[in-house]
């Protein structure tokens, strides 16, 4: 199953120009699945960076706008898009010029993969 999911994610990387990597982690940033190209910055895939999403979600909930679904951080060279699939976090790492809307549109495609993984995480 893992190989199949990895192949799907690899396909996504080639479909979206400028997308460097997709990482699916648990809430602590521990990697469950990682697919990335050579251009992906290693530090953006570290657990201590990814796990800060949990803090951002907590802070975001204080805005009174409902549950935080997506967090987009655009830096000078890269952009990081994180999706709230708690207990899982899906992180996309892309170039700053990459099509953000295209990545957001991928969310629905990832849902079956993520829900399968979430089940596996919940069971363990």
């Amino acid at each position: 199953m893992v190989e199949e999911v990895k192949n799907n994610l690899q396909e996504l990387l080639s479909k979206v120009s400028g997308l460097y990597g997709v990482v699916i982690t648990d809430r602590d940033g521990v990697h469950l699945l990682k697919v990335n190209s050579d251009k992906a910055p290693e530090h953006a895939m570290r657990p201590n960076f990814i796990s800060t999403f949990g803090l951002a979600v907590d802070q975001g909930s204080k805005l009174g706008l409902g549950k935080t679904n997506t967090l987009i951080c655009v830096y000078s060279q890269y952009q990081v898009i994180q999706m709230n699939k708690l207990p899982l976090i899906v992180t996309f790492i892309a170039s700053d010029t990459c099509n953000t809307g295209h990545i957001l549109a991928i969310e629905k495609q990832l849902d079956p993969i993520v829900s399968n993984l979430a089940l596996a995480v919940a069971e363990s």
Partner: peptide, 13 residues
Amino acid sequence: TESAGLIAAIAEQ
């Protein structure tokens, strides 16, 4: 509005 990203991607390609 969900098709926004795909529209931009099609135009770019």
